[in-house]
Amino acid sequence: MADSETPLAVHEPELRHHFDDSAQQFESSVLGMWVFLVTEVLFFGGMFGAYTVYRNLYPEAFASTSHFMNVTIGAINTAVLIFSSFTMVLSVRSAQLGQKKALIIFLILTLILGCVFLGFKYVEYHEKWVDHHVPGPSFRYEDTRYVHQAQILFFLYFAMTGMHAIHMIVGAGLLTALIVMSARNRFSAAWYTPVEMIGLYWHFVDVVWIFLFPLLYLIGHTK
């Protein structure tokens, strides 16, 4: 902890001089990251709101689309994403303890699990494409009463899981950057702020999926 008498030249190399100490610098980053995540909460919140409105406007059409959701892949992907959050939190812990090798291993594991999630997502999207369930000119629907209403619900499905998948792709890019930075010895127990921030982002994307999974795949499934 630097007090006001400490000469500037003595401060730790990673401490920017406009902060009192490393703890304050770190807390400022956490706060800033949360401000960004709150905007993301409201961004996804708008789509969840739209989804709930249409689900209540067209309950029968909604129930009929739920038969075409692949619950098995959805559940496996939920487990994969939770596992990746676990490895992410272990990366942050390794960074806190200054364990470089463990940090890199856990970051790579997290990246691999993220790619597994996207791979399963590709399989699901491909199923929808083959079945003509992608909204647009080639959209077909088995129950002819609900063609238009089902198209709205599939549009919401692609908008929500698509935005989530884009966030996963961005996260995979950020993880790659972290792996390169770790390999170049950029992090230490004294400074690992990017690992913590990208960890927060990764967990947020996990939280979005925790709500997407029951809403899109599970509710109305028995009808």
Partner: peptide, 14 residues
């Protein structure tokens, strides 16, 4: 269940 899971992630992982 989703709210409980999200709370666990936010409190412990985040």
């Amino acid at each position: 269940i989703a709210v409980i899971k999200a709370t666990l992630v936010i409190l412990f992982f985040m």
